[in-house]
C-alpha cells in the first residue's frame, strides 16, 4: 500500500506515516478511556439500576442512532425553494387543449347560469338605487321642512317689528328713537331692505 499511495502533501505524509500505527493503537488501548470504563461507570450503572431502568449497554447507542431524519416532503418544504409559476404545474391525466362548448345542453346551462347571475346583479342594483332614492327623498323633505320653519320665524320677527313700529308712532319721541335703534339692529341681522331706513332718515331730517 505504501509505495503505490500518492502523497499530495509532503509535510503531512511523514507525520501520518509515522503516527498512523501508533495513533490507532493508542486509541484502542487508551489509558484514560480504560480508567473511565472500568472505574467511573460502574457506580453510575448501579445508580440507574436502583431507579428501576433496565441497564442495557446498547440502549444509549440506540438512542443516538435514532436521531430523527425528516424528508423534505414530511417537513412540507417545496422541492424548489421558489415560487412555481402558473402554468408550469399541469394536472396529470387531463386532456391537453381547449374544451369547446358546442352542444345545446352545456350551452343552455351556461346561458341559465349567466342570466341568473346578471339578473341578480341588476336586481341588487335596483334595490340599492331605490334605497338611495328613499334616503334622498327623506333628506329633501327634511330640508324643505327646515326651510319652511326658517321662513315662518322670519315672518314672525317681521310682524313683531311692524307691531313695535306702530306702537312707537303712538308713543313719545324717545320711545320712537329706541324703537328705531332696535329695528335697525334687527334689520341688519335679518338683512332686510334699505328703503325703509332711507325713509326714516328723511323723517329725521324733517325733525
Amino acid at each position: 500500500m505504501a509505495p503505490t499511495r500518492t502523497v499530495k502533501n509532503k509535510h503531512a505524509a511523514p507525520k501520518a506515516g509515522s503516527k498512523g500505527g501508533s495513533g490507532k493503537k493508542r486509541s484502542s488501548t487508551d489509558g484514560v478511556s480504560k480508567s473511565k470504563s472500568s472505574k467511573g461507570k460502574k457506580p453510575a450503572i448501579s445508580a440507574t439500576e436502583v431507579k428501576g431502568r433496565p441497564n442495557l449497554p446498547g440502549l444509549n447507542k440506540d438512542k443516538k442512532k435514532k436521531l430523527p431524519v425528516y424528508t423534505d416532503k414530511e417537513l412540507g418544504i417545496p422541492e424548489l425553494n421558489m415560487i412555481t409559476p402558473v402554468g408550469v404545474t399541469k394536472p396529470r391525466g387531463k386532456k391537453k387543449g381547449k374544451v369547446f362548448v358546442d352542444d345545446r345542453e352545456s350551452m343552455s346551462t351556461l346561458l341559465a347560469l349567466v342570466q341568473a347571475e346578471k339578473e341578480g346583479q341588476i336586481e341588487s342594483k335596483m334595490m340599492r338605487a331605490r334605497q338611495l332614492e328613499e334616503i334622498r327623498e327623506a333628506r329633501r323633505k327634511e330640508a324643505e321642512k327646515k326651510e319652511a320653519e326658517r321662513r315662518a320665524e322670519l315672518e314672525q320677527t317681521k310682524e313683531a317689528i311692524r307691531r313695535k313700529r306702530k306702537r312707537g308712532k303712538k308713543g313719545t319721541k324717545d320711545g320712537q328713537e329706541e324703537d328705531e335703534g332696535e329695528s335697525v339692529k334687527e334689520l341688519a341681522a335679518t338683512g332686510s331692505k334699505a328703503t325703509k331706513s332711507k325713509k326714516k332718515k328723511v323723517s329725521f331730517a324733517e325733525d
Binding site: V99, F100, V101
Partner: peptide
C-alpha cells in the same frame, strides 16, 4: 372554431347586459 367555456361565458355576460 367553437368558443371555449371561458370565452362563451364572457360573450354571454356581455350580451346579458
Amino acid at each position: 372554431r367553437p368558443l371555449t367555456d371561458q370565452e362563451m361565458k364572457v360573450v354571454l355576460d356581455k350580451l346579458a347586459n
